[in-house]
């Protein structure tokens, strides 16, 4: 009798352990987005413009430099931050300043953000400045139908003319 009880208790304990494993390996369901939401990923890297103007060195200045260093034009290395603003349906949705990377602030600014928004027909306006004056150099306005669970990627590539939209 006692052994039967013990085996029973063992079965219960094994059962509990492996039920735990079985259950939590897939459950409970994780609601990543609500059923009426879509996702926007803003994702790009961009090297903004240099902070200062390039400048010509005078002859005296050049003479002081080692012969292999005598470049007439010197440019500051530091880049401006990238400013980004996005409006959705006429209201500001997101605003960000991305500092350049690198110790000398001479690298690219990288941006990655995920935003959840209500799905549906949406109108966006995106503006970007990569100049130290903050003047807007790139804009894009577009309408898009964001279906639930869809991802819109807002990319930026200056060589390809500015903002690029991918949508699945």
């Amino acid at each position: 009798m006692k052994t039967v009880l013990r085996y029973l208790a063992q079965a219960v304990l094994y059962g509990a352990f492996f039920a735990f494993v079985g259950y939590f390996s897939t459950s409970p369901r994780f609601e990543h987005l609500r059923p009426d939401e879509a996702l926007i990923r803003i994702s790009f890297s961009h090297a903004a413009q240099r902070v200062g103007e390039c400048r010509e060195r005078s002859d005296e200045e050049l003479a002081k430099l080692a012969p292999n260093m005598r470049l007439r034009t010197v440019c500051p290395r530091e880049r401006a931050p990238v400013l980004l603003e996005i409006d959705m349906d006429g209201k500001p949705l997101y605003k960000l300043t991305a500092q350049p990377t690198g110790l000398q602030k001479d690298g690219q600014s990288t941006v990655y953000r995920r935003l959840t928004v209500k799905s549906g027909q949406r109108h966006f306006a995106a503006r970007l400045s990569d100049h130290s004056s903050g003047v807007i150099g790139y804009t894009k306005e577009f309408s898009i139908d964001l279906a639930p669970g869809k991802v819109m990627v807002l990319d930026f590539n200056a060589a390809q003319g500015g903002f690029i939209i991918h949508q699945g």
Binding site: P28, R29, K150
Partner: peptide, 20 residues
């Protein structure tokens, strides 16, 4: 499908509890 996200997922909570 990198163009979409699944709104609900059957997560392995034992390994993935940190994502939520």
């Amino acid at each position: 499908n990198l163009d979409a996200v699944s709104s609900a997922l059957d997560l392995d909570w034992i390994y993935m509890f940190a994502h939520p």
